[in-house]
Design a protein around this nucleic acid. Structure first.
Lengths: 241, 241
DNA sequence: TTTTCGTTTCGGCGAATGTCGAAGCGTTCT
DNA sequence: AGAACGCTTCGACATTCGCCGAAACGAAAA
Protein backbone atom coordinates (compact mmCIF):
# COMPACT_ATOMS: atom_id res chain seq x y z
CA UNK A 1 0.00 0.00 0.00
CA UNK A 2 1.15 3.53 0.60
CA UNK A 3 4.59 3.95 2.08
CA UNK A 4 3.32 6.70 4.34
CA UNK A 5 2.60 6.96 8.01
CA UNK A 6 -1.03 6.42 8.79
CA UNK A 7 -1.71 9.74 10.45
CA UNK A 8 -5.39 9.06 10.11
CA UNK A 9 -5.30 6.16 12.53
CA UNK A 10 -4.14 8.38 15.34
CA UNK A 11 -6.19 11.27 14.04
CA UNK A 12 -9.35 9.21 14.14
CA UNK A 13 -8.60 8.29 17.72
CA UNK A 14 -8.32 11.96 18.61
CA UNK A 15 -11.19 13.12 16.44
CA UNK A 16 -13.95 12.94 19.00
CA UNK A 17 -14.45 15.63 21.68
CA UNK A 18 -15.26 13.02 24.28
CA UNK A 19 -12.09 11.07 23.60
CA UNK A 20 -10.13 14.30 23.72
CA UNK A 21 -11.53 14.96 27.18
CA UNK A 22 -10.60 11.49 28.31
CA UNK A 23 -7.08 11.94 27.02
CA UNK A 24 -6.75 15.29 28.73
CA UNK A 25 -7.82 13.68 31.97
CA UNK A 26 -5.21 10.98 31.51
CA UNK A 27 -2.53 13.48 30.61
CA UNK A 28 -1.63 14.04 34.25
CA UNK A 29 0.08 10.67 34.14
CA UNK A 30 -2.21 8.82 36.50
CA UNK A 31 -4.39 5.84 35.64
CA UNK A 32 -8.18 5.94 35.89
CA UNK A 33 -10.97 3.39 35.72
CA UNK A 34 -13.71 3.21 33.17
CA UNK A 35 -16.22 4.61 35.63
CA UNK A 36 -14.09 7.56 36.65
CA UNK A 37 -13.50 8.46 33.04
CA UNK A 38 -17.09 8.04 31.95
CA UNK A 39 -18.14 10.25 34.85
CA UNK A 40 -15.52 12.89 34.02
CA UNK A 41 -16.57 12.94 30.39
CA UNK A 42 -20.32 12.91 31.04
CA UNK A 43 -21.03 9.72 29.20
CA UNK A 44 -22.31 6.30 30.20
CA UNK A 45 -19.92 3.42 30.91
CA UNK A 46 -20.73 1.56 27.69
CA UNK A 47 -19.77 4.59 25.65
CA UNK A 48 -16.56 4.99 27.61
CA UNK A 49 -15.70 1.38 26.92
CA UNK A 50 -16.02 1.97 23.21
CA UNK A 51 -13.85 5.06 23.36
CA UNK A 52 -11.17 3.45 25.49
CA UNK A 53 -11.07 0.53 23.12
CA UNK A 54 -10.39 2.86 20.22
CA UNK A 55 -7.70 4.73 22.09
CA UNK A 56 -6.00 1.51 23.01
CA UNK A 57 -6.23 0.12 19.48
CA UNK A 58 -4.56 3.29 18.24
CA UNK A 59 -1.77 2.75 20.75
CA UNK A 60 -2.43 5.91 22.72
CA UNK A 61 -3.43 4.24 25.96
CA UNK A 62 -2.84 1.00 27.83
CA UNK A 63 -5.03 -0.81 30.28
CA UNK A 64 -4.41 -3.27 33.08
CA UNK A 65 -6.96 -5.29 35.00
CA UNK A 66 -6.92 -5.22 38.75
CA UNK A 67 -9.74 -7.30 40.12
CA UNK A 68 -12.97 -6.00 38.73
CA UNK A 69 -11.40 -2.66 37.88
CA UNK A 70 -9.66 -1.80 34.67
CA UNK A 71 -7.18 1.03 34.84
CA UNK A 72 -6.38 3.08 31.79
CA UNK A 73 -3.39 5.33 31.28
CA UNK A 74 -1.38 7.05 28.56
CA UNK A 75 0.66 4.39 26.82
CA UNK A 76 4.05 6.07 27.05
CA UNK A 77 5.89 9.31 27.66
CA UNK A 78 6.36 9.47 23.92
CA UNK A 79 2.62 9.56 23.39
CA UNK A 80 2.22 12.19 26.10
CA UNK A 81 4.80 14.44 24.57
CA UNK A 82 3.34 14.10 21.09
CA UNK A 83 -0.10 14.98 22.43
CA UNK A 84 1.24 17.95 24.33
CA UNK A 85 2.96 19.15 21.19
CA UNK A 86 -0.26 18.71 19.27
CA UNK A 87 -2.14 20.77 21.86
CA UNK A 88 0.13 23.61 20.91
CA UNK A 89 -1.52 23.74 17.53
CA UNK A 90 -5.04 24.19 18.86
CA UNK A 91 -6.47 27.28 17.15
CA UNK A 92 -6.15 30.14 19.64
CA UNK A 93 -9.76 31.22 19.48
CA UNK A 94 -10.77 27.85 20.83
CA UNK A 95 -8.33 28.03 23.70
CA UNK A 96 -9.42 31.47 24.73
CA UNK A 97 -13.08 30.61 24.58
CA UNK A 98 -12.52 27.43 26.53
CA UNK A 99 -10.22 28.62 29.29
CA UNK A 100 -12.04 29.68 32.42
CA UNK A 101 -9.79 32.19 34.13
CA UNK A 102 -10.62 31.16 37.68
CA UNK A 103 -9.83 27.52 37.11
CA UNK A 104 -6.36 26.70 38.27
CA UNK A 105 -5.40 25.24 34.95
CA UNK A 106 -3.83 28.42 33.68
CA UNK A 107 -1.91 28.98 36.88
CA UNK A 108 -0.44 25.59 37.57
CA UNK A 109 -1.01 22.25 36.03
CA UNK A 110 0.96 19.15 35.38
CA UNK A 111 1.90 17.97 31.94
CA UNK A 112 2.13 14.18 32.09
CA UNK A 113 4.97 14.10 34.59
CA UNK A 114 6.27 17.61 34.98
CA UNK A 115 5.07 21.09 35.80
CA UNK A 116 3.31 23.40 33.36
CA UNK A 117 1.04 26.43 33.34
CA UNK A 118 2.11 29.89 34.43
CA UNK A 119 3.92 28.48 37.44
CA UNK A 120 5.88 26.12 35.22
CA UNK A 121 6.89 28.96 32.97
CA UNK A 122 7.83 31.12 35.93
CA UNK A 123 10.01 28.46 37.48
CA UNK A 124 11.75 27.80 34.23
CA UNK A 125 12.71 31.40 33.72
CA UNK A 126 13.77 31.64 37.35
CA UNK A 127 16.07 28.65 36.93
CA UNK A 128 17.60 30.36 33.94
CA UNK A 129 17.92 33.71 35.73
CA UNK A 130 19.64 32.22 38.73
CA UNK A 131 22.10 30.13 36.75
CA UNK A 132 20.71 26.75 37.70
CA UNK A 133 20.17 26.15 34.02
CA UNK A 134 21.59 27.92 31.03
CA UNK A 135 21.00 28.14 27.34
CA UNK A 136 23.48 26.47 25.06
CA UNK A 137 22.66 26.78 21.39
CA UNK A 138 18.94 26.88 22.00
CA UNK A 139 18.92 23.91 24.34
CA UNK A 140 18.85 23.75 28.11
CA UNK A 141 21.96 22.69 29.97
CA UNK A 142 22.96 22.68 33.63
CA UNK A 143 24.36 26.02 34.77
CA UNK A 144 26.87 26.97 37.45
CA UNK A 145 24.35 26.78 40.28
CA UNK A 146 22.94 23.44 39.14
CA UNK A 147 24.45 21.18 41.79
CA UNK A 148 23.88 23.68 44.58
CA UNK A 149 20.23 23.72 43.56
CA UNK A 150 19.94 19.95 43.72
CA UNK A 151 21.53 19.89 47.16
CA UNK A 152 19.30 22.70 48.32
CA UNK A 153 16.17 20.83 47.32
CA UNK A 154 17.49 17.52 48.53
CA UNK A 155 17.13 15.95 45.11
CA UNK A 156 19.11 13.02 43.86
CA UNK A 157 21.24 14.25 40.98
CA UNK A 158 19.31 12.89 38.04
CA UNK A 159 21.28 10.58 35.90
CA UNK A 160 22.77 12.83 33.28
CA UNK A 161 23.32 10.87 30.13
CA UNK A 162 23.70 11.86 26.55
CA UNK A 163 20.39 10.26 25.73
CA UNK A 164 18.32 11.53 28.64
CA UNK A 165 18.51 15.29 28.87
CA UNK A 166 18.41 16.87 32.31
CA UNK A 167 15.95 19.40 31.07
CA UNK A 168 14.36 20.25 27.81
CA UNK A 169 11.80 22.70 26.63
CA UNK A 170 8.20 21.69 26.41
CA UNK A 171 5.81 24.10 24.77
CA UNK A 172 2.78 24.93 26.89
CA UNK A 173 -0.60 25.14 25.22
CA UNK A 174 -1.96 27.81 27.55
CA UNK A 175 1.10 30.01 27.73
CA UNK A 176 2.64 29.24 24.35
CA UNK A 177 5.93 29.59 26.14
CA UNK A 178 8.49 27.02 27.07
CA UNK A 179 8.63 25.27 30.39
CA UNK A 180 10.95 22.47 31.37
CA UNK A 181 10.46 18.76 31.19
CA UNK A 182 13.25 16.22 31.36
CA UNK A 183 14.52 14.51 34.45
CA UNK A 184 14.87 17.75 36.38
CA UNK A 185 11.33 18.81 35.55
CA UNK A 186 10.03 15.46 36.72
CA UNK A 187 12.02 15.65 39.94
CA UNK A 188 10.72 19.12 40.74
CA UNK A 189 7.10 18.08 40.33
CA UNK A 190 7.64 14.96 42.44
CA UNK A 191 9.28 16.99 45.15
CA UNK A 192 6.48 19.56 45.12
CA UNK A 193 3.82 16.88 45.43
CA UNK A 194 5.68 14.86 48.06
CA UNK A 195 6.26 17.86 50.28
CA UNK A 196 2.73 19.10 49.63
CA UNK A 197 3.74 22.38 48.04
CA UNK A 198 1.18 21.56 45.42
CA UNK A 199 -1.85 19.28 45.61
CA UNK A 200 -3.73 17.71 42.79
CA UNK A 201 -7.31 18.75 42.17
CA UNK A 202 -9.99 16.17 42.00
CA UNK A 203 -10.96 16.18 38.38
CA UNK A 204 -8.42 18.05 36.33
CA UNK A 205 -4.74 18.51 35.73
CA UNK A 206 -4.82 21.71 37.71
CA UNK A 207 -2.69 22.01 40.83
CA UNK A 208 -3.30 24.08 43.93
CA UNK A 209 -0.55 25.95 45.72
CA UNK A 210 -0.69 25.26 49.46
CA UNK A 211 0.35 27.85 52.10
CA UNK A 212 3.51 25.87 52.80
CA UNK A 213 4.02 25.57 49.08
CA UNK A 214 3.89 29.32 48.72
CA UNK A 215 6.67 29.69 51.25
CA UNK A 216 8.79 26.99 49.70
CA UNK A 217 8.28 28.24 46.16
CA UNK A 218 9.19 31.72 47.30
CA UNK A 219 12.40 30.46 48.84
CA UNK A 220 13.52 28.21 46.03
CA UNK A 221 12.18 29.93 42.95
CA UNK A 222 11.82 33.57 43.95
CA UNK A 223 8.06 33.45 43.69
CA UNK A 224 7.29 36.68 45.54
CA UNK A 225 3.82 37.77 46.61
CA UNK A 226 3.82 40.36 43.91
CA UNK A 227 4.80 37.75 41.36
CA UNK A 228 1.93 35.60 42.53
CA UNK A 229 -0.43 38.53 42.29
CA UNK A 230 0.91 39.19 38.88
CA UNK A 231 0.29 35.62 37.81
CA UNK A 232 -3.19 35.84 39.27
CA UNK A 233 -4.01 39.21 37.81
CA UNK A 234 -2.77 38.34 34.39
CA UNK A 235 -5.18 35.48 34.61
CA UNK A 236 -7.91 37.86 35.61
CA UNK A 237 -7.06 40.33 32.90
CA UNK A 238 -7.45 37.63 30.30
CA UNK A 239 -11.05 37.21 31.38
CA UNK A 240 -12.02 40.67 30.20
CA UNK A 241 -11.09 40.09 26.62
CA UNK B 1 -16.56 25.56 28.63
CA UNK B 2 -13.83 23.08 29.30
CA UNK B 3 -10.46 24.51 30.16
CA UNK B 4 -8.74 21.93 28.02
CA UNK B 5 -7.04 22.00 24.68
CA UNK B 6 -9.31 20.91 21.91
CA UNK B 7 -7.30 17.99 20.67
CA UNK B 8 -10.37 16.83 18.80
CA UNK B 9 -10.30 19.80 16.44
CA UNK B 10 -6.93 18.81 15.09
CA UNK B 11 -7.73 15.14 15.47
CA UNK B 12 -10.81 15.51 13.31
CA UNK B 13 -8.72 17.19 10.65
CA UNK B 14 -6.35 14.23 10.63
CA UNK B 15 -9.02 11.58 11.00
CA UNK B 16 -9.60 10.85 7.35
CA UNK B 17 -7.24 8.65 5.32
CA UNK B 18 -7.53 10.92 2.33
CA UNK B 19 -6.61 13.98 4.34
CA UNK B 20 -3.70 12.09 5.85
CA UNK B 21 -2.44 11.37 2.34
CA UNK B 22 -2.76 14.98 1.38
CA UNK B 23 -0.83 16.03 4.45
CA UNK B 24 1.90 13.50 3.76
CA UNK B 25 2.21 14.88 0.27
CA UNK B 26 2.52 18.39 1.65
CA UNK B 27 5.05 17.31 4.26
CA UNK B 28 7.95 17.76 1.87
CA UNK B 29 7.50 21.48 2.37
CA UNK B 30 6.42 22.36 -1.13
CA UNK B 31 3.06 23.83 -2.10
CA UNK B 32 0.63 22.02 -4.38
CA UNK B 33 -2.56 22.91 -6.21
CA UNK B 34 -5.95 21.42 -5.65
CA UNK B 35 -5.68 19.37 -8.80
CA UNK B 36 -2.28 17.94 -7.97
CA UNK B 37 -3.47 16.93 -4.56
CA UNK B 38 -6.76 15.47 -5.73
CA UNK B 39 -4.86 13.47 -8.30
CA UNK B 40 -2.33 12.25 -5.75
CA UNK B 41 -5.08 11.22 -3.36
CA UNK B 42 -7.31 9.60 -5.98
CA UNK B 43 -10.30 11.81 -5.41
CA UNK B 44 -12.18 14.35 -7.49
CA UNK B 45 -11.45 18.08 -7.21
CA UNK B 46 -14.66 18.87 -5.29
CA UNK B 47 -13.74 16.38 -2.61
CA UNK B 48 -10.25 17.79 -2.38
CA UNK B 49 -11.70 21.25 -1.93
CA UNK B 50 -13.73 20.04 1.03
CA UNK B 51 -10.71 18.38 2.61
CA UNK B 52 -8.41 21.32 2.09
CA UNK B 53 -11.00 23.59 3.61
CA UNK B 54 -11.06 21.46 6.73
CA UNK B 55 -7.31 21.35 6.98
CA UNK B 56 -7.11 25.09 6.65
CA UNK B 57 -9.86 25.68 9.19
CA UNK B 58 -7.94 23.51 11.64
CA UNK B 59 -4.87 25.64 11.06
CA UNK B 60 -2.78 22.86 9.56
CA UNK B 61 -2.43 24.31 6.08
CA UNK B 62 -2.47 27.68 4.36
CA UNK B 63 -3.45 28.60 0.84
CA UNK B 64 -2.59 31.40 -1.52
CA UNK B 65 -4.19 32.24 -4.84
CA UNK B 66 -2.03 32.70 -7.85
CA UNK B 67 -4.08 33.38 -10.90
CA UNK B 68 -6.51 30.56 -11.34
CA UNK B 69 -4.41 28.27 -9.20
CA UNK B 70 -4.63 27.91 -5.47
CA UNK B 71 -1.53 26.61 -3.76
CA UNK B 72 -1.74 24.77 -0.49
CA UNK B 73 1.07 24.15 1.93
CA UNK B 74 1.72 23.19 5.55
CA UNK B 75 0.93 26.22 7.68
CA UNK B 76 4.18 26.37 9.62
CA UNK B 77 7.29 24.49 10.65
CA UNK B 78 5.61 24.03 14.00
CA UNK B 79 2.77 22.13 12.39
CA UNK B 80 5.20 20.05 10.36
CA UNK B 81 7.18 19.07 13.41
CA UNK B 82 4.08 18.18 15.38
CA UNK B 83 2.87 16.00 12.52
CA UNK B 84 6.23 14.33 12.18
CA UNK B 85 6.23 13.61 15.88
CA UNK B 86 2.75 12.22 15.59
CA UNK B 87 3.83 9.95 12.77
CA UNK B 88 6.21 8.37 15.23
CA UNK B 89 3.25 6.99 17.10
CA UNK B 90 1.80 5.14 14.12
CA UNK B 91 1.22 1.56 15.25
CA UNK B 92 4.17 -0.46 13.99
CA UNK B 93 2.10 -3.13 12.26
CA UNK B 94 0.65 -0.47 10.02
CA UNK B 95 4.05 0.94 9.12
CA UNK B 96 5.48 -2.44 8.37
CA UNK B 97 2.55 -3.41 6.23
CA UNK B 98 2.58 -0.10 4.43
CA UNK B 99 6.28 0.36 3.78
CA UNK B 100 7.38 -1.14 0.52
CA UNK B 101 11.04 -1.99 0.92
CA UNK B 102 12.04 -1.07 -2.61
CA UNK B 103 10.53 2.37 -2.45
CA UNK B 104 13.11 4.99 -1.71
CA UNK B 105 11.19 6.31 1.25
CA UNK B 106 13.07 4.19 3.72
CA UNK B 107 16.44 5.08 2.24
CA UNK B 108 16.21 8.82 1.84
CA UNK B 109 13.35 11.20 2.18
CA UNK B 110 12.83 14.76 3.20
CA UNK B 111 11.00 15.76 6.33
CA UNK B 112 9.41 19.15 5.68
CA UNK B 113 12.69 20.96 5.09
CA UNK B 114 15.48 18.65 6.11
CA UNK B 115 16.80 15.20 5.43
CA UNK B 116 15.34 12.02 6.91
CA UNK B 117 15.26 8.30 6.27
CA UNK B 118 18.27 6.01 6.62
CA UNK B 119 20.48 8.50 4.86
CA UNK B 120 19.45 11.22 7.29
CA UNK B 121 20.27 8.97 10.22
CA UNK B 122 23.58 7.99 8.68
CA UNK B 123 24.64 11.56 8.09
CA UNK B 124 23.69 12.57 11.60
CA UNK B 125 25.81 9.89 13.18
CA UNK B 126 28.64 10.70 10.83
CA UNK B 127 28.53 14.35 11.84
CA UNK B 128 28.75 13.26 15.45
CA UNK B 129 31.56 10.79 14.77
CA UNK B 130 33.68 13.34 12.95
CA UNK B 131 33.23 16.09 15.52
CA UNK B 132 31.20 18.42 13.35
CA UNK B 133 28.51 18.16 15.98
CA UNK B 134 28.69 16.95 19.53
CA UNK B 135 26.32 15.96 22.27
CA UNK B 136 25.93 18.30 25.19
CA UNK B 137 23.50 17.08 27.78
CA UNK B 138 21.34 15.26 25.30
CA UNK B 139 21.19 18.13 22.87
CA UNK B 140 23.14 18.76 19.69
CA UNK B 141 25.77 21.47 19.65
CA UNK B 142 28.48 22.48 17.18
CA UNK B 143 31.67 20.48 17.61
CA UNK B 144 35.33 21.27 16.93
CA UNK B 145 35.08 20.54 13.22
CA UNK B 146 31.89 22.56 12.77
CA UNK B 147 33.30 25.59 10.99
CA UNK B 148 35.66 23.54 8.88
CA UNK B 149 32.67 21.55 7.73
CA UNK B 150 30.73 24.65 6.73
CA UNK B 151 33.69 25.95 4.76
CA UNK B 152 34.19 22.58 3.13
CA UNK B 153 30.61 22.48 1.91
CA UNK B 154 30.59 26.16 1.00
CA UNK B 155 27.67 26.85 3.32
CA UNK B 156 26.90 30.20 4.86
CA UNK B 157 27.35 29.83 8.58
CA UNK B 158 23.75 29.61 9.72
CA UNK B 159 22.75 32.27 12.18
CA UNK B 160 23.40 30.72 15.54
CA UNK B 161 21.12 32.22 18.10
CA UNK B 162 19.89 31.04 21.46
CA UNK B 163 16.41 30.69 20.04
CA UNK B 164 17.21 29.00 16.76
CA UNK B 165 19.27 25.90 17.37
CA UNK B 166 21.86 24.99 14.76
CA UNK B 167 20.72 21.41 14.90
CA UNK B 168 18.22 19.44 16.88
CA UNK B 169 17.03 15.91 16.90
CA UNK B 170 13.96 14.97 14.93
CA UNK B 171 12.57 11.51 15.41
CA UNK B 172 12.08 9.58 12.21
CA UNK B 173 8.97 7.49 11.75
CA UNK B 174 10.62 4.86 9.60
CA UNK B 175 13.85 4.53 11.55
CA UNK B 176 12.62 5.48 15.01
CA UNK B 177 16.03 7.02 15.39
CA UNK B 178 17.07 10.63 15.55
CA UNK B 179 18.21 12.65 12.59
CA UNK B 180 18.99 16.34 12.51
CA UNK B 181 16.78 19.25 11.70
CA UNK B 182 17.54 22.85 12.62
CA UNK B 183 19.28 25.36 10.44
CA UNK B 184 22.17 23.01 9.64
CA UNK B 185 19.78 20.23 8.63
CA UNK B 186 17.95 22.60 6.33
CA UNK B 187 21.18 23.86 4.79
CA UNK B 188 22.41 20.36 4.08
CA UNK B 189 19.23 19.39 2.26
CA UNK B 190 19.27 22.60 0.25
CA UNK B 191 22.86 22.03 -0.72
CA UNK B 192 22.17 18.44 -1.72
CA UNK B 193 19.25 19.45 -3.91
CA UNK B 194 21.01 22.46 -5.42
CA UNK B 195 24.09 20.47 -6.38
CA UNK B 196 21.92 17.57 -7.52
CA UNK B 197 23.30 15.05 -5.06
CA UNK B 198 19.72 14.12 -4.48
CA UNK B 199 16.69 14.58 -6.67
CA UNK B 200 13.07 14.64 -5.66
CA UNK B 201 10.78 11.91 -6.90
CA UNK B 202 7.62 12.77 -8.67
CA UNK B 203 4.93 11.89 -6.20
CA UNK B 204 6.43 11.20 -2.82
CA UNK B 205 8.83 12.53 -0.27
CA UNK B 206 11.40 10.00 -1.35
CA UNK B 207 14.73 11.19 -2.71
CA UNK B 208 17.05 9.53 -5.19
CA UNK B 209 20.81 9.52 -4.82
CA UNK B 210 22.47 10.54 -8.09
CA UNK B 211 25.87 9.21 -9.22
CA UNK B 212 27.48 12.57 -8.44
CA UNK B 213 25.62 12.57 -5.16
CA UNK B 214 27.14 9.26 -4.26
CA UNK B 215 30.61 10.67 -4.77
CA UNK B 216 29.88 13.84 -2.85
CA UNK B 217 28.17 12.03 0.01
CA UNK B 218 31.11 9.67 0.22
CA UNK B 219 33.53 12.55 0.44
CA UNK B 220 31.65 14.66 2.94
CA UNK B 221 29.85 12.11 5.06
CA UNK B 222 31.92 8.96 4.74
CA UNK B 223 29.14 7.17 2.90
CA UNK B 224 31.20 4.24 1.59
CA UNK B 225 29.96 1.71 -0.93
CA UNK B 226 29.73 -0.87 1.79
CA UNK B 227 27.71 1.53 3.90
CA UNK B 228 25.36 2.07 0.98
CA UNK B 229 25.06 -1.66 0.49
CA UNK B 230 24.42 -1.97 4.17
CA UNK B 231 21.67 0.61 4.04
CA UNK B 232 20.20 -1.16 1.06
CA UNK B 233 20.46 -4.63 2.49
CA UNK B 234 19.02 -3.65 5.82
CA UNK B 235 16.10 -2.42 3.83
CA UNK B 236 15.92 -5.75 2.09
CA UNK B 237 16.19 -7.68 5.31
CA UNK B 238 13.23 -5.81 6.70
CA UNK B 239 11.12 -7.15 3.89
CA UNK B 240 11.48 -10.74 5.05
CA UNK B 241 9.88 -10.15 8.42
C1' DT C 1 -24.23 -18.86 47.90
C1' DT C 2 -26.25 -14.75 47.04
C1' DT C 3 -25.79 -10.00 46.28
C1' DT C 4 -23.47 -6.11 44.60
C1' DC C 5 -20.83 -3.69 41.44
C1' DG C 6 -17.66 -2.54 37.54
C1' DT C 7 -17.18 -3.65 32.94
C1' DT C 8 -18.48 -5.25 28.50
C1' DT C 9 -21.57 -6.75 24.50
C1' DC C 10 -25.55 -5.98 21.64
C1' DG C 11 -29.13 -3.58 19.08
C1' DG C 12 -31.01 0.44 17.39
C1' DC C 13 -31.39 5.39 16.67
C1' DG C 14 -29.92 9.89 14.94
C1' DA C 15 -26.28 12.93 13.42
C1' DA C 16 -22.17 13.81 10.96
C1' DT C 17 -19.32 13.06 7.06
C1' DG C 18 -16.85 11.42 2.72
C1' DT C 19 -17.93 10.92 -1.97
C1' DC C 20 -19.34 12.25 -6.54
C1' DG C 21 -21.83 14.59 -10.70
C1' DA C 22 -23.65 18.76 -12.35
C1' DA C 23 -23.46 23.42 -12.53
C1' DG C 24 -21.52 28.18 -11.54
C1' DC C 25 -17.67 31.44 -11.26
C1' DG C 26 -13.36 33.57 -12.33
C1' DT C 27 -8.86 33.60 -14.65
C1' DT C 28 -5.97 32.59 -18.60
C1' DC C 29 -5.04 31.39 -23.29
C1' DT C 30 -6.19 31.64 -28.30
C1' DA D 1 -14.73 37.58 -27.69
C1' DG D 2 -14.77 32.86 -27.21
C1' DA D 3 -12.84 28.65 -25.52
C1' DA D 4 -10.34 26.21 -22.08
C1' DC D 5 -9.12 25.42 -17.53
C1' DG D 6 -9.03 25.34 -12.43
C1' DC D 7 -11.55 25.89 -8.43
C1' DT D 8 -15.73 26.05 -5.78
C1' DT D 9 -20.73 25.39 -4.46
C1' DC D 10 -24.79 22.55 -4.31
C1' DG D 11 -27.60 18.46 -3.85
C1' DA D 12 -27.96 13.63 -3.09
C1' DC D 13 -26.47 9.22 -1.51
C1' DA D 14 -24.23 5.76 1.35
C1' DT D 15 -21.48 4.95 5.17
C1' DT D 16 -19.63 5.66 9.54
C1' DC D 17 -19.89 6.76 14.20
C1' DG D 18 -21.25 8.45 18.84
C1' DC D 19 -24.64 7.51 22.04
C1' DC D 20 -27.73 5.11 25.10
C1' DG D 21 -30.68 1.29 27.39
C1' DA D 22 -31.01 -3.45 28.28
C1' DA D 23 -28.77 -7.38 29.32
C1' DA D 24 -24.77 -10.48 30.06
C1' DC D 25 -20.34 -11.44 32.23
C1' DG D 26 -17.10 -11.78 36.04
C1' DA D 27 -14.97 -10.53 40.27
C1' DA D 28 -15.48 -9.01 44.98
C1' DA D 29 -18.23 -8.56 49.13
C1' DA D 30 -21.87 -10.06 52.36
Amino acid sequence: MRPEPRLDIIGAALADPTRARILCKLMDGRAFTNKELSCAANITPPTATAHLKQLERAGLTTSIRSGRHVFHRIASAQVASALEKLSTLTPSDHVRRAAKPDSGVLLARCCYNHLAGRLGVWITYNLLDTGVLQLAHGALAPGPRYHAFLTDLDLDPPRVSAHRPVAKFCLDWTERRNHISGSLGIAILEKALKDKWLTRQRSSRALTITPEGKIALTRHFGLSDSALDCLGSSVRSMAKR
